[in-house]
Computed example of a mutant assay.
Amino acid sequence: MESDRQGSDLASDERYHALVRRRSRFAWGLSAVMLAIFFGYILLIAFRRDILAMPIGGGVTSLGIPVGIGVILAGIALTGVYVRKANREFDPAFDALRREYGL
Protein backbone atom coordinates (compact mmCIF):
# COMPACT_ATOMS: atom_id res chain seq x y z
CA MET A 1 0.00 0.00 0.00
CA GLU A 2 2.91 2.34 0.69
CA SER A 3 4.10 1.91 -2.89
CA ASP A 4 0.71 3.25 -4.06
CA ARG A 5 1.30 6.38 -2.02
CA GLN A 6 4.89 7.11 -3.04
CA GLY A 7 5.10 10.57 -4.48
CA SER A 8 1.88 11.52 -2.70
CA ASP A 9 1.65 13.64 0.37
CA LEU A 10 -0.75 13.28 3.28
CA ALA A 11 -1.35 17.03 3.21
CA SER A 12 -2.78 16.76 -0.31
CA ASP A 13 -5.15 13.86 0.51
CA GLU A 14 -8.80 14.92 0.34
CA ARG A 15 -9.72 12.52 3.17
CA TYR A 16 -7.22 14.32 5.39
CA HIS A 17 -8.73 17.71 4.51
CA ALA A 18 -12.26 16.41 5.11
CA LEU A 19 -11.23 15.07 8.52
CA VAL A 20 -9.56 18.34 9.46
CA ARG A 21 -12.69 20.24 8.39
CA ARG A 22 -14.96 17.95 10.46
CA ARG A 23 -12.74 18.26 13.53
CA SER A 24 -12.53 22.02 13.12
CA ARG A 25 -16.30 22.42 12.71
CA PHE A 26 -16.89 20.31 15.81
CA ALA A 27 -14.37 22.28 17.88
CA TRP A 28 -15.74 25.64 16.75
CA GLY A 29 -19.28 24.46 17.52
CA LEU A 30 -18.32 23.52 21.06
CA SER A 31 -16.47 26.83 21.41
CA ALA A 32 -19.58 28.70 20.31
CA VAL A 33 -21.68 26.85 22.89
CA MET A 34 -19.20 27.71 25.63
CA LEU A 35 -19.02 31.35 24.55
CA ALA A 36 -22.82 31.57 24.56
CA ILE A 37 -22.94 30.14 28.10
CA PHE A 38 -20.17 32.42 29.33
CA PHE A 39 -21.47 35.61 27.72
CA GLY A 40 -25.00 34.74 28.82
CA TYR A 41 -23.74 34.61 32.39
CA ILE A 42 -21.83 37.88 32.00
CA LEU A 43 -24.88 39.58 30.45
CA LEU A 44 -27.01 38.28 33.31
CA ILE A 45 -24.55 39.82 35.77
CA ALA A 46 -24.55 43.11 33.85
CA PHE A 47 -28.27 43.53 33.22
CA ARG A 48 -30.23 41.29 35.61
CA ARG A 49 -28.15 41.22 38.74
CA ASP A 50 -31.35 40.90 40.77
CA ILE A 51 -31.93 37.38 39.42
CA LEU A 52 -28.48 36.20 40.48
CA ALA A 53 -28.81 37.94 43.86
CA MET A 54 -31.89 35.90 44.86
CA PRO A 55 -31.14 33.80 47.93
CA ILE A 56 -31.63 30.06 47.63
CA GLY A 57 -32.58 27.54 50.30
CA GLY A 58 -33.42 30.19 52.88
CA GLY A 59 -29.73 30.85 53.48
CA VAL A 60 -27.22 33.46 52.49
CA THR A 61 -26.12 31.75 49.29
CA SER A 62 -27.42 33.49 46.18
CA LEU A 63 -28.45 31.95 42.88
CA GLY A 64 -25.31 33.41 41.29
CA ILE A 65 -23.07 30.87 43.04
CA PRO A 66 -24.61 27.68 41.57
CA VAL A 67 -25.06 29.35 38.19
CA GLY A 68 -21.37 30.35 38.20
CA ILE A 69 -20.40 26.81 39.17
CA GLY A 70 -22.63 25.62 36.32
CA VAL A 71 -20.65 27.75 33.87
CA ILE A 72 -17.42 26.15 35.06
CA LEU A 73 -18.92 22.65 34.92
CA ALA A 74 -20.22 23.33 31.40
CA GLY A 75 -16.67 24.12 30.31
CA ILE A 76 -15.42 20.89 31.85
CA ALA A 77 -18.25 18.88 30.28
CA LEU A 78 -17.68 20.37 26.82
CA THR A 79 -13.98 19.59 27.12
CA GLY A 80 -14.93 16.01 27.98
CA VAL A 81 -17.23 15.82 24.95
CA TYR A 82 -14.40 16.98 22.69
CA VAL A 83 -11.86 14.56 24.19
CA ARG A 84 -14.28 11.64 23.88
CA LYS A 85 -15.03 12.39 20.23
CA ALA A 86 -11.36 12.98 19.45
CA ASN A 87 -10.34 9.70 21.08
CA ARG A 88 -13.10 7.66 19.41
CA GLU A 89 -13.28 9.22 15.97
CA PHE A 90 -10.69 11.81 14.99
CA ASP A 91 -7.51 10.26 16.40
CA PRO A 92 -8.11 6.75 14.94
CA ALA A 93 -8.89 8.27 11.53
CA PHE A 94 -5.74 10.41 11.61
CA ASP A 95 -3.69 7.41 12.74
CA ALA A 96 -5.07 5.28 9.89
CA LEU A 97 -4.11 7.95 7.35
CA ARG A 98 -0.64 8.31 8.87
CA ARG A 99 -0.10 4.54 8.69
CA GLU A 100 -1.30 4.53 5.09
CA TYR A 101 1.34 7.13 4.24
CA GLY A 102 3.99 5.43 6.34
CA LEU A 103 4.24 8.26 8.86
Rank of each mutant, 00 (worst) to 15 (best):
19 L>S: 07
19 L>G: 08
19 L>T: 01
19 L>Y: 05
19 L>E: 08
19 L>P: 00
19 L>A: 12
20 V>R: 14
21 R>M: 07
21 R>F: 01
21 R>K: 13
22 R>Q: 06
22 R>Y: 00
23 R>H: 09
23 R>D: 06
23 R>E: 12
23 R>Y: 03
23 R>T: 06
24 S>F: 13
24 S>A: 08
24 S>Y: 09
24 S>C: 00
24 S>G: 09
25 R>Y: 07
25 R>G: 02
26 F>Q: 05
26 F>H: 11
26 F>A: 09
27 A>E: 01
27 A>F: 11
28 W>P: 00
28 W>C: 02
28 W>K: 06
28 W>L: 13
29 G>L: 09
29 G>R: 09
29 G>M: 03
30 L>C: 08
30 L>Q: 04
31 S>L: 05
31 S>M: 03
31 S>G: 07
32 A>H: 03
33 V>I: 14
34 M>Q: 13
34 M>I: 00
36 A>K: 09
36 A>W: 08
37 I>W: 07
37 I>C: 07
37 I>V: 15
37 I>R: 04
37 I>N: 06
37 I>E: 06
37 I>F: 07
37 I>D: 00
38 F>W: 10
38 F>D: 02
38 F>K: 04
38 F>S: 15
39 F>M: 09
39 F>I: 08
39 F>G: 00
39 F>W: 15
39 F>P: 00
40 G>R: 07
41 Y>I: 02
41 Y>T: 13
41 Y>W: 15
42 I>G: 03
42 I>K: 09
43 L>I: 12
43 L>V: 10
43 L>N: 12
43 L>F: 15
43 L>Q: 15
44 L>A: 05
44 L>E: 03
45 I>P: 00
45 I>Q: 15
46 A>D: 13
47 F>M: 11
47 F>A: 08
47 F>I: 09
47 F>L: 12
47 F>P: 02
48 R>I: 03
48 R>V: 11
49 R>T: 14
49 R>H: 13
49 R>E: 10
50 D>K: 01
50 D>E: 15
50 D>C: 01
50 D>W: 14
50 D>H: 10
50 D>F: 00
50 D>N: 12
51 I>W: 15
51 I>R: 07
52 L>M: 11
52 L>S: 12
52 L>H: 06
52 L>Y: 13
53 A>G: 07
53 A>F: 12
53 A>D: 14
53 A>K: 06
53 A>T: 03
54 M>G: 03
54 M>C: 02
55 P>F: 02
55 P>I: 01
55 P>H: 06
56 I>P: 04
56 I>Q: 05
57 G>A: 10
58 G>E: 10
58 G>I: 03
58 G>A: 06
